[in-house]
């Protein structure tokens, strides 16, 4: 079933991809414009998508329950981290991320919190001092820019 969905999605995507390519026109003389290559690609993507939709492999075992929830929470944490890293700053956001991920992977709260602090301090030392790379200081320490 997974393959059928993916195959149909890919075929539709290929149709859209090839169709959209036709809009890329230029005025000056260019034998092969910007639309040709995507249009050429769209054909095999569409056909192969249809192929796996019609002749699917057995579905993989998708996670459910606890594992799926864990993955959803992990993705949520990653997205939150991506959005908050710059405004909040490296040290606080990394402490929370690393601690929460350890918790998610089955660590007990105490060690998880400790590992969060250690990971963020350790990475800060490595990146900022040893490698001399700029890390976001965050509004808390640097003040508003």
């Amino acid at each position: 079933m997974s393959d059928r969905i993916a195959g149909v999605a890919l075929a539709l995507l290929a149709a859209w991809y090839g169709w959209t390519a036709g809009e890329y026109q230029i005025d000056f003389a260019d034998v092969v414009g910007p639309s040709a290559f995507p249009q050429v690609l769209a054909v095999p993507i569409g056909l192969l998508g249809l192929y796996i939709a019609l002749r699917p492999d057995p579905s993989p075992g998708w996670p459910s329950g606890r594992h799926l929830l864990g993955q959803a929470m992990a993705v949520g944490l990653l997205v939150g981290y991506a959005l908050l890293l710059v405004p909040v700053g490296f040290l606080p956001s990394t402490t929370v991320l690393a601690g929460a991920l350890a918790l998610l992977l089955g660590a007990r709260p105490g060690p998880a919190a400790a590992s969060g602090v250690m990971v963020s301090l350790g990475c800060y030392a490595l990146f900022a001092w040893v490698l001399d790379l700029p890390l976001p200081p965050g509004a808390l320490f640097a003040g508003p820019e």
Binding site: L85, L101, A107, P111, C123, F127, L135
Partner: peptide, 20 residues
Amino acid sequence: VPPRYLMPVIVVVSFMGVYT
């Protein structure tokens, strides 16, 4: 060292790498 403490490090390093 149990992986539950190592995997977060990998995630952080990935993010920092892309960020820098």
